[in-house]
């Protein structure tokens, strides 16, 4: 045995590490989409926003030398995309799902168009906090090397949960999401509130993208997102529009994704495509197990086009 070889213990450690590393962008996109959908809109275009965030964040970090400036610009770029989606969908009869798909195309197109010159340069990475200092094992230290954005994402999930449940802005979002008529009766302007919620959701997705390019995997290229943005939007349904559940969904998805490489590294080498499909199979399994025909859309905002 070679030094540092911890055998099968490597698998759970890798899954925990993978859950922390891979889940962050999914968490941010899911949280952003949760807010948007709770207000009664669906923005399917966050995949494009994620890629735009990744590109603008990386480009800014290259140009300014500051990774945090990159995160900020990614959030702004995401907010602009969300704002456009929100404003366009405020026009009567415009389909929010369709606009989302068109914006996915536009977002990735713009990101690839302007991103070409930034594939080669190396940008500074976001810092990580070594929460594994107590262990001698390099595997544990690496797994618990936690990026600040992950912790911010966790905090935001709890904050959003509290905001939606116990604050006036949260109540407004929920009312608008459940019934436009009720909202108007209360003197609220649903279109305006949904636009703001979509813009904030876009900013979240932009930060998720910055995590991809500035921390993990930590570089800008055109294969940076393999559909995480689209998947994260779908996971909101899985999490039943609950910010706390978004954390679990993102961790499940990220951890299951680490299973494939980890199993190969301990010698389980057959059928790796099937292990790589673990996140999708597990999510589908949980979805089927936790759904029931009678409460098909429990927790769904009433105004959401996808669940009507």
């Amino acid at each position: 045995m070679t030094t540092g070889d911890i055998g099968l213990w490597g698998v759970p450690i890798a899954v925990i590490g993978g859950a922390i590393r891979v889940s962050t962008p999914i968490l941010f996109v899911s949280l952003g989409e949760t807010l948007t959908e709770r207000s009664g809109r669906i923005n399917l275009g966050l995949e494009g926003t994620l890629v735009i965030g990744a590109m603008t964040g990386y480009a800014t970090a290259v140009l300014t030398g500051s990774a945090w400036a990159g995160v900020l610009v990614a959030a702004l770029a995401g907010a602009v995309f969300g704002l456009v989606h929100g404003l366009v969908c405020s026009l009567p009869k415009v389909n929010d799902i369709a606009i989302g798909i068109a914006m996915m195309l536009l977002g990735t197109g713009l990101a690839f168009y302007f991103g070409k010159p930034f594939i080669q340069p190396v940008a500074p990475n976001l810092p990580a906090i070594p929460l594994g200092w107590w262990s001698d094992l390099p595997q544990v230290q690496a797994a618990l090397n936690v990026n600040v954005l992950f912790l911010i994402g966790l905090a935001l999930a709890f904050a959003m949960h509290w905001m939606l449940r116990a604050t006036r802005p949260g109540l407004i979002v929920r009312v608008v999401g459940d019934s436009s008529d009720a909202a108007r009766a209360m003197g609220l302007k649903p279109a305006q509130i949904r636009t703001i919620a979509t813009a904030i959701g876009g900013a979240f997705a932009g930060v998720g993208g910055a995590y991809l390019s500035l921390y993990y995997p930590g570089s800008w290229n055109e294969a940076i997102s393999s559909g995480q943005g689209l998947m994260a939007v779908a996971l909101v349904i899985f999490a039943r529009w609950n910010p706390i559940a978004c954390i679990w969904a993102a961790l499940l998805f990220g951890g299951a994704g680490a299973l494939g490489p980890a199993l190969q590294s301990v010698g389980v080498t057959q059928g790796y495509y099937l292990f790589y499909a673990a996140p999708y199979v597990l999510t589908l399994g949980v979805l089927i197990a936790t759904s029931s025909p009678s409460r098909a859309m429990a927790g769904a905002p009433g105004e959401l086009s996808i669940t009507k």
């Binding site: 999708y280 979805l287 409460r295």
Partner: peptide, 16 residues
């Protein structure tokens, strides 16, 4: 039969 949202189910099934 199960009330599973078809949007997410079909996306997951396509990756599978």
């Amino acid at each position: 039969l199960r009330g599973v949202n078809e949007t997410i189910a079909s996306l997951l099934l396509s990756y599978i």
